[in-house]
Design a protein around this nucleic acid. Structure first.
Lengths: 201, 201
DNA sequence: ACCTGAACACCGTTCAAGT
DNA sequence: ACCTGAACACCGTTCAAGT
């Protein structure tokens, strides 16, 4: 009997796949498993995705949206008078996200064809919007000097993503810091960088 | 007929697997393909490796050694009187490595069990030795102030690895810099960071 | 000790159907 | 349009052998 799926299978598949990714890891995630978990035949996913990579791209895209929400929330929670504190809060949220969802971040930063997945590229660019705004307001406050705010944003992003990426790779054996957690180290590293971007007088 | 393999199969497998990784990507790398390419039965690898992950760990370990060699060479080529220039040269070499061997770097920074692969952990730690020495001599020169040289080294590492990691993920669509290559951006970002670590007077 | 061949459960993907 | 079932080539891993 043909037991059709209820509502939006595409959405459900992404949901189920994300859970599977968190539990089983990148290697444990298979099209067949996610189809079964969604209560559908093993090739139903091909109705909504060209191939497995397309599913991963969709998961990645969703991940960037989630990341943006958490960074946004962290900024809202922090002292609005202090741009530096807000930048650090945003950075800490980024690293916390990475540690809470290491497999997800890995999928987000796999190499995709940007032409093939324009929505993914857009979502990842949008996840930096709040950071960019902070850098701009830091310049207006006179706290952050130096040239292009785009360049400064990307420098901060690189620093934060490096911490996140390394802390995932070395899990328990925290090579980053002897005893402290990775989030503890964030403010130290970011402060170095912001000092280099700050007015010297 | 039992056609035994000549010399060191373990070494040959790592060699062959690394080539396969470069050409076919992380997904195209299979135990069966590398066995075939090494001229050996599909389960001969199990004589030398517990499972596929162990092969990847060996490839990763070899990668950290390669990286260390290239960073070392870049430092030797640069101005020995100028610690900052040496740090930038080392950083650029790191990013160049990442762009020349993106799949290799990805395997190097996959999450491994440190207890299971102590040699991998040692090789990755050793790849930072030269950077650490530069930071120390920078402190003695009075060029780099601030606290623990270990912390400073890891901050630089995070920045550089972040640039490398992001530039791999976004390949052609260089989200990092509008027109410049990723290596061009390295000196700008690292200079921000080193300014933050430099003496203020 | 080192390697092989057959076998197992699992993949991604395709294709001919069904409604 | 949306889904299914059978089929294909490929995988990692195990196991009983062979030398």
């Amino acid at each position: 009997m043909a037991k059709y799926h209820h509502g939006n299978l595409r959405h459900d598949l992404i949901q189920v796949a994300t859970e599977l990714l968190a539990v089983e890891g990148t290697h444990g995630l298979s099209l067949r498993k996610m189809a079964q978990k969604a209560g559908v035949s093993h090739n139903a996913p091909y109705m909504h995705f060209a191939d497995k990579e397309a599913v991963l791209a969709a998961i990645a895209e969703e991940g960037f949206r989630l990341l943006a929400v958490e960074v946004e929330a962290a900024i809202e929670r922090s002292d609005r008078q202090n741009t530096r504190q807000q930048l650090i809060a945003a950075s800490e949220a980024y690293v916390r996200f990475a540690q809470a969802r290491p497999n997800h971040l890995q999928v987000m930063f796999a190499p995709y064809d940007a032409v093939k997945y324009p929505d993914l590229l857009a979502a990842s660019a949008a996840s930096l919007d709040r950071l960019f705004e902070l850098v701009k307001s830091g310049r207006e406050n006179g706290k952050l000097v130096a040239g292009d705010p785009h360049v400064m944003t990307k420098a901060i992003w690189s620093m934060v993503h490096g911490i996140a990426s390394i802390s995932i790779a070395y899990q328990t054996t925290t090579i980053l810091s002897a005893n402290d957690s990775a989030t503890d180290v964030v403010s130290v590293f970011i402060n170095y960088l912001l000092d280099g971007m700050a007015t010297k007088d």
